[in-house]
């Protein structure tokens, strides 16, 4: 089953604000409609990943396959980019930085590579930043329409797990599920540990998650789930990228309390059986891939 996009909104305009002006000026005339990643590495050419493939940005302001024509990233560009991304406040983004990314206005996520500084046994800082990967946030309204019938009958919600490899559209699907369930009148709570799902910025989500959706951000999933259970009385909790045992225990706890959980998990077909074993508590498992483009729903399994 292939779910086609109904409405697609890419926050390309906002992402340009976080690209150093030396590089940004070559990008104004480029059509960014299908772009999902922009990559900056020190002393290397700027390249973008789009639906049509990987391209370099040329000094003439167009996309090219030729590396020699492309714009190279200087040390100053990297410093400027870091200043723009952190709003000149690296100390304020420490928690995000140690996870390897910073979420910026518009819901876009910028991955960071550099040299880690370890203090008291944990990563306290990343210095000498060498690469920045701008991941453009997508909001695809209607992407979950065709799987919604498997998740809810309008009265109750089934515990659902979405499994896919990275970049196949899990998070986009979860966002749309939150919006759809909210529109159906369910009380939805989004647990967004890594600021990716709701991309809250100054208390406001960059996406339409529906009117009856509450968002809790920046707190480890297992803690956040317990918090919202007590404080917000949700009917369904939606969260991204389950991974730890604590997450699994938290999901089971929510289910024991009568709250449905819709979550996602990294995985591929080879991992499918393992993940099912670990998270056998889910009623519906949706497998996604990039086979027919981002957002391809391969299989919906009702257990």
């Amino acid at each position: 089953m292939y779910v086609s996009n109904c409405v697609k909104k890419i926050a390309t305009n906002k992402i340009l604000d976080y690209i150093p002006d030396n590089i940004r000026r070559y990008m104004y005339s480029i059509n960014m409609d299908n772009v999902y990643q922009i990559h900056l590495s020190y002393d290397k050419p700027v390249y973008i990943n789009s639906g049509a493939g990987t391209f370099f940005i040329s000094r003439h302001g167009v996309l090219t396959d030729n590396v020699s024509e492309s714009v190279f990233v200087t040390k100053k560009d990297m410093e400027t980019a870091i200043e723009l991304i952190s709003e000149a406040s690296m100390y304020a983004v420490k928690n995000e930085l140690v996870q390897g990314f910073i979420t910026v206005n518009g819901g876009n996520r910028i991955g960071i590579c550099g040299t880690g500084v370890i203090k008291r046994g944990e990563v306290s800082y990343i210095k000498d930043i060498s690469s920045l990967n701008y991941r453009l946030a997508n909001e695809v309204v209607g992407v979950s329409d065709k799987v919604l019938n498997f998740i809810t009958d309008g009265i109750e919600i089934k515990n659902t797990l979405i499994i896919s490899p990275p970049g196949a559209g899990k998070t986009t699907m979860l966002r749309d599920i939150a919006r759809n369930l909210s529109e159906l009148g369910f009380s939805v709570c989004v647990v967004d540990e890594r600021f990716e799902l709701a991309s809250m910025h100054e208390g406001k989500s960059a996406f339409d998650l529906g009117v009856s959706t509450d968002v809790i951000s920046g707190i480890p999933k297992h803690m956040a789930m317990s918090m919202v259970l007590r404080s917000m009385s949700p009917q369904v909790i939606i969260t991204d990228e389950l991974g730890t045992e604590q997450d699994t225990e938290a999901v089971l706890k929510m289910q024991r309390c009568g709250v449905a959980v819709i979550a996602s998990m990294h995985g591929s077909e080879s991992l499918e059986n393992d993940t099912r074993k670990i998270l056998g508590c889910f009623d519906v498992i949706i497998n996604m891939s990039k086979k027919n483009g981002v957002g391809t729903v391969e299989e919906v399994t009702i257990i």
């Binding site: 200043e83 952190s86 000149a88 406040s89 690296m90 100390y91 420490k94 500084v117 306290s124 800082y125």
Partner: peptide, 10 residues
């Protein structure tokens, strides 16, 4: 250094 370091160093 302003705005480029971790909190303690800042």
């Amino acid at each position: 250094t302003l705005g480029t370091l971790d909190r303690d160093s800042e």
